[in-house]
Nucleic acid binder design. Structure first.
Lengths: 244, 244
DNA sequence: TTATGTGAACTAATTCACAGCT
DNA sequence: AGCTGTGAATTAGTTCACATAA
């Protein structure tokens, strides 16, 4: 959380860089792709590339170059015509747009396999985020270390969230416990939740929930796989079963 | 994989139920929501609900009712005006549309925390999928059981994929190993890949890749969190840093 | 030259609002 | 009377194609 206090007067101040750079906000679809660009840029940077053209960056990110350029244009005009983009500078601008110039403290609720996988995700998670705590109810896990953080009891949830001004919580508990954990996170002040439990969480207005669902992704793959088969085999698959 | 062989003649056969039910295919956005509806339907069914109106189902799925009805209309006309939808029947129709009337054998590559989390995902994963094998290179893991399946060595990958006609593979290995594993899966005949490694996989035409990326979701949350803060604090956040 | 940035055209997705069926 | 199914209207997202700038 920022230390800034009350600037409500200059909301529409012209010349405010954010107003110029983000006229009417960045489209959701663009926001969802910025992290992909950011990762591609990091990879290029590590390889010593200092300048990259939209074609190349687009290939690395798995999109077409027109889309990439349009996306980046929503952040501002940070490329050089005839040349391309400066990798380091673009990393900075994309990071800034995503809000990653600060480091967000995160609490992970659930220290099962998934919680552990998250806590150990290391490399990429640590850019822009810091795991402040991992919580569980299982007494046998308490005190164990996970990704450099001790596993603590969920009874400490409220205190930890408040003391560290945690805005982002990750739910990695079984479906049955997820809504209760969500309610506690929200009550304690968390406004962004990443939900791995397979259910739709109810949250009050103003709380942002994103879900990651393993079985949903598999089911989408199954749909396309079936469709591919149907095409190959003349679409007669399941024909009999379809009526009634 | 189906046992059907060559039906290429009747591709455009009118009266084919799939042609009638899916005129011009189901929109991607709809496909991505069908699994959510399916889960909500299962939950309702377990509670003993036998009929559900679009409002109620939409609420359970976290979408609005117009969208739900439009989505379902792409599968066919399976509701009853003035009444609603029969839960059991709709479960069947959605399952069929998603290709879940068959059980897809799946191979998971990587038995680290994430692979283990997936293998133990149990309840929801098993509806429509069967984990045929979990593979790893780590000798200390081999022979251990995971979600009812033995962990085997990746050297068996090709044999296992071929013998079981596996069409869907899950990559849960570190980024450095992911592309190589992907190539081997594809060479062995896998055409659908769910990728948990934080990189963009290259695959030949005709192979379907979906990615699940923990850090991307967090970054999207950070964006919105930042934006919320900027609104509250008058959008002056990062103003100085923006120039140069 | 060469590659960005962007209006304009196009395509997809969402929402509205109500006709039509039970 | 009530709820589905869907054309029509709207909004969002993508792609094209080229003027513009280094």
């Amino acid at each position: 959380m920022s230390s800034a206090a009350e600037f409500t007067d200059q909301e529409a101040e012209p010349g405010n860089t954010i107003d110029r750079a983000y006229p009417g906000g960045i489209p959701e679809a663009t926001v969802a792709r910025l992290p992909v660009y950011l990762r591609a840029l990091y990879t290029l940077g590590e390889r010593g590339v200092s300048t990259v053209a939209s074609d190349e960056l687009a290939r690395a990110a798995g999109v077409n170059s027109a889309k990439l350029r349009k996306d980046l244009s929503h952040l501002g005009s940070y490329g050089i015509r005839g040349v391309g983009y400066d990798v380091e500078y673009l990393v900075y601008q994309v990071s800034r747009a995503l809000g990653l110039t600060q480091r967000w403290p995160v609490v992970i609720v659930g220290a099962g396999n998934l919680g552990r996988a998250l806590a150990n995700y290391g490399g990429f998670l640590t850019r822009g985020f810091r795991i402040e705590a991992v919580l569980d109810t299982d007494a046998s896990l308490l005190g164990r270390e996970l990704g450099g953080v001790l596993i603590r009891h969920v009874s400490e949830l409220e205190r930890i969230v408040t003391e560290n001004s945690i805005a982002i919580g990750v739910i990695a508990v079984p479906a049955g416990a997820a809504q209760a954990m969500c309610d506690r996170l929200v009550a304690a002040g968390v406004t962004s939740i990443l939900n791995f439990a397979p259910l739709v969480l109810s949250v009050p207005e103003g709380v942002d929930v994103r879900k990651v669902d393993l079985s949903i992704e598999l089911q989408i793959l199954a749909f396309h796989a079936q469709r591919r088969n149907a095409e190959r085999f003349g679409q007669a698959v399941d024909q009999a079963a379809a009526e009634a």
